[in-house]
Design a protein around this nucleic acid. Structure first.
Lengths: 330, 330
DNA sequence: CTGAAAGCGCTTACAG
DNA sequence: CTGAAAGCGCTTACAG
């Protein structure tokens, strides 16, 4: 590989001058700069990052630990959010996928430390509490889509309650006044907060809570969940007779659409359907297209990266707002 | 940060001895090894990768250029395949997301060169031909899920024809003998090859080709495609009266399920449905669950990585076999 | 089995 | 504005 010295020899200057040109030092005579630039071009020189890092004693690397992240497609926006900013600020984003069976969190952190990361973003697959090993204290750390048990790090999570309030208010605003909310597994924090948000919307609109049915249709432990969406949706439509169904996640909405059609009803006409996530292509694959609250993954990824960039370390717990993607299902 | 010299001082040996222990050199006296290990533990020493790279003149980094990869969730397995092997062989996989608007391929390659990558995997979002800039010739390059116009690099693509033959033969084996194949956009290579495979299965089974209908239901240019799946499926079921429908991708199958149900028929009973991709959760979200040919993304990612590891550079064009995921839709 | 010297490709700190 | 020296944290090559 061609080095700074090769370029210097080719250009007829000291190698330090080449270094100056590469680093945009303005104190180089235009004539010399030109000679160097020409030599760089002709020789195809590219600075050696490892050597730069060694001497500078700064790595320019931010670590991104993705906790089981990639099992759910849309969570990838968390990485994208951080990645786009990293590129912009000429930083390297080193993404490590962690899951129980393969790469332990400790292993990932050690790996990142060997690269002398300047900060770490720890992101979870779904909104939840995590307890991180003490190692993280050695370097600035920010949590995205999760928060730590002891509140030791800055963290950002989706504003579940406000999202639930907003979409419910939107339903109510369009005249729906008897709503069934098929909630996520009651073990997860999102289920609890969303229930509060939905109820809040009813209270704000002065509608009797008798017109609201909230029921978890996903059960079981992580990695071994089962859904009773179809059977419960059918039963609820028949007996509770809601004029709208709110689903805890878009895949549930697919099932609800099938149930509604099987009962001879039409989504968006006989019954409104709303949902959460904006899961990949599901919302636009359905007909009518699904109105859903899009998770703010991209924004959370960006917020986390900015937090590190600005060297903020106060253990704030920030929330990010969902976006209402209005389509035709209600 | 603590260095090799700090450890040496703490352990009372020469710093070269610490280097030997860190690099598992067997010629260190057990007693000294122990002292060094203890010092490393106590001081929390971690080798500095950048310094190692600089001196070794080997980066241990493999570049992975993902061409628009992340718009389709399951393609992520391409990265995972390479990633898992990288971890195993103690290499770094540097993943760069490329798309026309943001990071050009040239920019990505330059970036990788600054890190002195030992090889590059170039992966495409869908099976297609690509033409890479000449820069790639400077370093071993392997293509995954695509092949280059001039056949200059080793590449691996899904075996579309065999997959189509296999699932069609499977349908025929279960007694289906009048099949409609709703194909992908006819502009893409997969559509052409799969059509051949489906026809081959008919020929092998001695079934008259009058019982096969192949029709593209996706039109338009890349990034601006439209699907006529629903209307065409309905029309074909009514008029061609197939006993099975084969879909070019799983999202199509979702639409076909809705059409079948609307016509008062049952998938898996009145009409068989098969598909391609194994797209995220779609196959198991449907009821009955969808039988589909799973794309070999993980395997292609692994093959590409191994190719670089074994320093194979002959421009072979390898194919990877799909896996038939049998469920209940036929 | 161990160590002192030299060097990787660069940047820092300083002299002119 | 330019350059010669020193040094980043390691490994290589060699001597003992």
């Amino acid at each position: 590989m061609v080095t700074i010295k090769d370029v210097a020899a080719h250009a007829g200057v000291a190698f330090k001058t080449v270094s100056r040109v590469v680093n945009n030092d303005p104190t180089v005579k235009p004539k010399n700069r030109e000679k160097v630039l020409k030599a760089i071009e002709e020789l195809g020189y590219r600075p050696n990052r490892a050597a730069q890092m060694t001497r500078r004693k700064k790595s320019g690397v931010i670590g991104f630990i993705a906790d089981e992240l990639l099992r759910v497609p849309y969570t990838f926006d968390l990485i994208r959010g951080a990645q786009d900013l990293a590129w912009k600020h000429d930083k390297e984003l080193m993404v490590l996928n962690v899951n129980v069976n393969k790469y332990s969190v400790e292993g990932a952190v050690n790996h990142l430390f060997e690269h002398r990361v300047e900060g770490i973003i720890y992101a979870a697959m779904y909104h939840r509490e995590v307890s991180l090993p003490l190692q993280f204290k050695e370097v600035p750390t920010v949590l995205a889509n999760c928060y730590d048990s002891y509140g030791r790090y800055p963290s950002i999570v989706p504003d579940e309650k406000e999202a639930a309030r907003e979409i419910t208010a939107s339903l109510i605003g369009k005249g729906y006044k008897r709503i069934a909310f098929l909630n996520l597994n009651e073990n997860i924090i999102a289920a609890k907060l969303r229930k509060e948000g939905v109820e809040q919307a009813f209270i704000n609109a002065n509608i009797n809570l008798d017109n609201l049915l909230v029921e978890s249709v996903i059960f079981g432990e992580e990695n071994n969940e089962r859904s009773v969406t179809r059977s419960r949706a059918e039963d609820i439509i028949k007996n509770f007779k809601p004029d709208a169904i709110l689903c805890g996640q878009d895949p549930m909405a697919v099932e609800v659409y099938f149930v509604v059609q099987a009962l001879g009803l039409k989504v968006g006409k006989d019954i409104g359907v709303g949902s959460f996530d904006d899961w990949d292509i599901i919302p636009t694959l359905l007909q009518p297209e699904l109105t859903t609250m899009a998770l703010p993954h991209y924004e959370m990824g960006q917020w986390a990266f900015n937090c590190l960039l600005e060297e903020r370390t106060e253990p704030v717990k920030e929330t990010a707002r969902f976006t209402l993607n209005s389509r035709q299902s209600f």
